[in-house]
Design a protein around this nucleic acid. Structure first.
Length: 494
DNA sequence: TTTTGAGTTGTTCGA
DNA sequence: GTCGAACAACTCAAA
């Protein structure tokens, strides 16, 4: 009917379906909808149904709640309205399109198999019904299918992937937010934000999290700007990022997860800071490479959608990781392994919804190599407790540490939790912050309390096995055991 | 087709 | 204390 509109009849509204892109700036789907000149309906659907239960972990829900509140504010500031729904995604979207008589629908792409299948099915249906359905790229610098090796296949090693990404030239500049949103005169969403029950209660374990996270678009931008200021986080990033007590990490991961910021905005702002000469180029390059690791993880997830639950390297199916939720597993979850650096990390996670990257590697190595527990259990725990729990990063990184992932570390690379602790938390600031019961130990013994003389322990008010656990496993025994297990994987193949 | 160089984040041991 | 070598062999990507 488009061209036959006689002017009396209003243009059919356009829908923007928000998912992992909870921002109004640099949002291609929103821009495209505004460009139609139609009135715009902004919607978010909290998925419901058995197959979608895993869409958000508990910690992510807290972040999601605030990100949605922030998005609703931004949208209404532009003259529009965010409508919330709860239900089966396909059914809800179909019914919104029908009831609003929408002429078009826009969204930014997502990359899990479930998400892609859902989107493809809906797009096909709408197109057949004469409704414009358009997906856009907003969450990745490059679509996973656009970067190919010379053979036309996907990349399975990071370095060539990075070189390819760079050879494609600079990413596009971020899009500005729309001048205004012409709100469609249609009925409101079916639920309120509070109806979605995303916040924890009884107990509210996230009561202090507002001190750590400003979980919305403004918070993301402020965090990025602060990080990129001369003398702040990115200055010394390439070395400092390994020290969990330092502020040399961006903490933008949950914002990327929910799209309160886009990788285009991060890339462009980093280049801008670099051009101003504020920061050493080695540091900015290292930071952009980390952003590219996220791209690489999505590249893998797109081409190997099973990596969320299945070993990328099938030989590891024979490894024999334990999969029951044993006492050892629970001790790891709670941060009671007896290794201070591991316990500090697990408690940081529990208390703040975040864990420093270096420490993530240490605790993941400890679970999969020292305790021989399956990375899937670790991945699930992280998924439920991390605010930045990300479909691609979480799976790809766990597999990388476990040794079964793409471009994984050589099998003999088993982190020594004591050496790592001494090297990256030499003054014990990080450990003392999260494991206060051993804070009075001198630096010398903080990393391995079981080696401290009895009088040093009692002076620090520690009774091993009572006030703080004895180590669950002895490092060199655990190392030998892990090496033997890897040896088995190797032989089983021959 | 074959060849070649390279591969995020480490540990241990012995000189 | 510091340093270099060994720890395996394989797969990937590109020439």
């Amino acid at each position: 009917m488009g061209d036959e509109n006689d002017g009396n009849q209003q243009k059919r509204p356009a829908i923007v379906w928000f998912r992992d892109d909870l921002r109004v700036s640099d949002n291609p789907a929103l821009c495209e909808a505004c460009k139609t000149g139609s009135s715009v309906i902004c919607v978010f659907v909290l998925p419901e149904g058995l197959d979608q239960l895993a869409d958000y972990g508990s910690a992510q829900k807290w972040f999601l709640h605030h990100a949605l509140a922030g998005l609703a504010n931004k949208i209404s500031g532009l003259g529009g309205r965010l409508d919330l729904f709860h239900g089966n995604e396909k059914d809800v979207i179909r019914s919104i399109v029908k009831e609003t008589n929408a002429g078009s629908i826009f969204w930014n792409r997502r990359y899990t198999r479930h998400g892609r299948d859902t989107d493809a099915e809906l797009k096909k249906e709408f197109k057949e019904a004469g409704i414009e359905a358009k997906s856009l790229g907003g969450s990745l610098l490059h679509e996973p299918y656009s970067l190919q090796t010379q053979d036309g296949g996907p990349y399975r090693v990071y370095s060539p992937f990075w070189r390819k990404l760079v050879s494609e030239g600079e990413p596009r500049l971020p899009l500005p937010e729309p001048d205004g949103i012409d709100a469609a005169d249609v009925q409101d969403g079916t639920v309120t934000l509070d109806d979605l029950k995303l916040l924890p209660r009884d107990p509210d374990w996230a009561s202090a999290w507002k001190d750590f996270w400003q979980a919305n678009e403004d918070g993301a931008r402020a965090r990025l700007e602060e990080f990129l200021e001369a003398g702040d986080g990115i200055d010394g990033y390439s070395k400092g990022r390994d020290f969990p007590s330092r502020d040399n990490v961006s903490r933008l991961s949950p914002h990327l997860r929910f799209g309160t910021i886009s990788p285009y905005q991060i890339w462009s702002a980093t280049r801008h800071a670099e051009d101003k000469g504020d920061i050493p180029s080695g540091d900015s390059e290292k930071f952009l490479k980390e952003l590219a690791w996220r791209e690489f993880s999505y590249h893998l997830l797109f081409h190997y959608p099973d990596i969320s639950w299945q070993n990328y390297n099938e030989r590891f199916d024979e490894f024999g990781w334990k999969e029951d939720k044993s006492e050892a597993y629970h001790a790891w979850c709670k941060g009671k392994t007896g290794y201070p650096i591991v316990d500090a990390g697990m408690r940081e996670l529990w208390q703040t919804g975040y864990m420093h990257n270096r420490v993530r590697m240490i605790v993941a190595s400890f679970l999969t190599k020292h305790l021989l527990i399956h990375w899937r259990l670790g991945e699930k725990w992280f998924w439920d407790t991390l605010v930045d729990g990300d479909h691609a990063n979480n799976a790809a990184s766990w597999q990388w540490v476990a040794g079964c992932g793409a471009d994984a570390a050589p099998y003999f690379r088993i982190f020594n939790p004591i050496t790592q602790s001494r090297k990256f938390d030499p003054d014990g600031e990080y450990i003392r912050r999260y494991v206060p019961e051993i804070a009075d130990l001198p630096d010398k013994h903080l990393h391995a309390p079981w080696e401290a003389p009895e009088d040093v322990l009692s002076d620090a008010g520690i009774q091993l096995g009572q006030t703080y656990p004895k180590p669950m496993v002895e490092h060199s025994c655990a190392r030998e055991r892990a090496l033997a297990a890897y040896d088995k994987v190797k032989k089983d193949d021959g």
